[in-house]
Simulated assay, not measured.
Amino acid sequence: MIRIVIADDHAVVRSGFSMILDFQADMEVIGTAADGLEAYTVTAKSRPDVLIMDLSMPPGESGLIATGKIKEDFPETQILILTMHDDEDYLFHVLKNGASGYVLKNAPDEELLLAIRTVYSGGTYINPKMATSLVREFVNKDHSAHLDDPFELLSKRELEILPLIAKGYGNKEIAEKLFVSVKTVEAHKAKIMEKLQLKSRPELVEYALKKKLLDF
């Protein structure tokens, strides 16, 4: 039996997927979550085989950030990303953060079931259309462009702080959320601005939106 947790900010989506998956003889939904933080908590408690993660879950933590945390702390859980975004850069960051698969929200039920069984068995599943685009990109483009992206220089803590700054949280609020000192937040904020070569908060917000760390 494949034990599954579903993380999506829409209750109707969680209910719909739960019905589909529980109907399968080899699958069981053991928990749900409405944002990245709750996904981490539910995963820590139930240790599912597969976590289906939506990346856009405002106003909670970004699914992309949560994916990295969960995969680092619970490597035995395979993470399958479910999203509306179908661009190659997004796919690259998702896989880099530890996801084992990537399925578009408009995919048929059969594809979702195949993806779950694939990642559960240790494989990697990518939507066929996206896989073709990804291979084409690696063949036709210099992959060093990704390595030159300042985003790759950000630490795990900086990746947590960046979207919080962009959402308008102050240093004290961020410090309380992450259980660190205000000085630590200020230091990380300065490093983020320096690494990304940004000069103002509006530029940071625009950057966070471009990287899909926010969803307004």
Rank of each mutant, 00 (worst) to 15 (best):
G101Q: 09
S100R: 15
L82N: 14
T124K: 08
P75S: 11
L95H: 08
G101N: 10
T132M: 12
V94Y: 03
P150Y: 01
Q78S: 14
V135E: 04
Y90E: 03
I70C: 04
F74W: 10
P108L: 07
F151A: 09
L114M: 09
D87Q: 02
E72I: 13
H93S: 06
D73K: 15
E110V: 09
A107Y: 06
K141H: 14
L114G: 01
A107D: 08
F74Y: 14
V94D: 00
E110R: 14
S100T: 13
R136A: 07
L104C: 12
K141Y: 08
N97E: 08
F74R: 13
T118D: 07
N106K: 03
L95G: 08
G101K: 05
L82A: 12
Q78M: 12
D89G: 08
M130H: 02
D142M: 02
S133E: 00
L112P: 04
K69D: 14
L114F: 01
A107E: 06
S100P: 00
L95Y: 03
K96V: 10
N106R: 02
K71H: 13
N106P: 05
A99R: 11
D109E: 08
L104W: 04
H146R: 02
S133K: 15
G122E: 06
D73W: 07
L134K: 13
E88A: 14
V135L: 13
P75D: 00
Y125N: 03
T132G: 13
A145F: 07
E137N: 13
V103Q: 10
T77V: 12
Y120M: 03
K129S: 12
L113A: 05
A131I: 08
E88L: 14
N97A: 15
V135M: 10
Q78F: 05
K129R: 14
D142R: 01
G123R: 12
G123V: 06
F138V: 09
V139Q: 09
L112Y: 06
M84F: 07
F138N: 05
N127T: 11
T132V: 12
H93P: 01
D89S: 07
T83V: 13
Y125W: 12
L112A: 00
L95M: 15
D73N: 13
L114D: 06
D142H: 05
H146N: 13
L82T: 04
L147C: 04
I70P: 01
A145R: 00
D109M: 03
L95T: 10
T77A: 07
D142Y: 08
A131H: 06
Y102R: 14
Y90P: 01
E152K: 00
T118F: 08
E110G: 13
I81G: 02
V103P: 02
K141S: 06
A115D: 02
I79Y: 04
V119Y: 07
E76H: 11
T132C: 09
T83Q: 09
K105P: 12
V103F: 03
V119E: 09
Q78R: 15
Y120Q: 11
A99I: 15
E152Y: 02
A99N: 04
V119G: 02
H93W: 10
A131Q: 12
D73Q: 15
A99H: 01
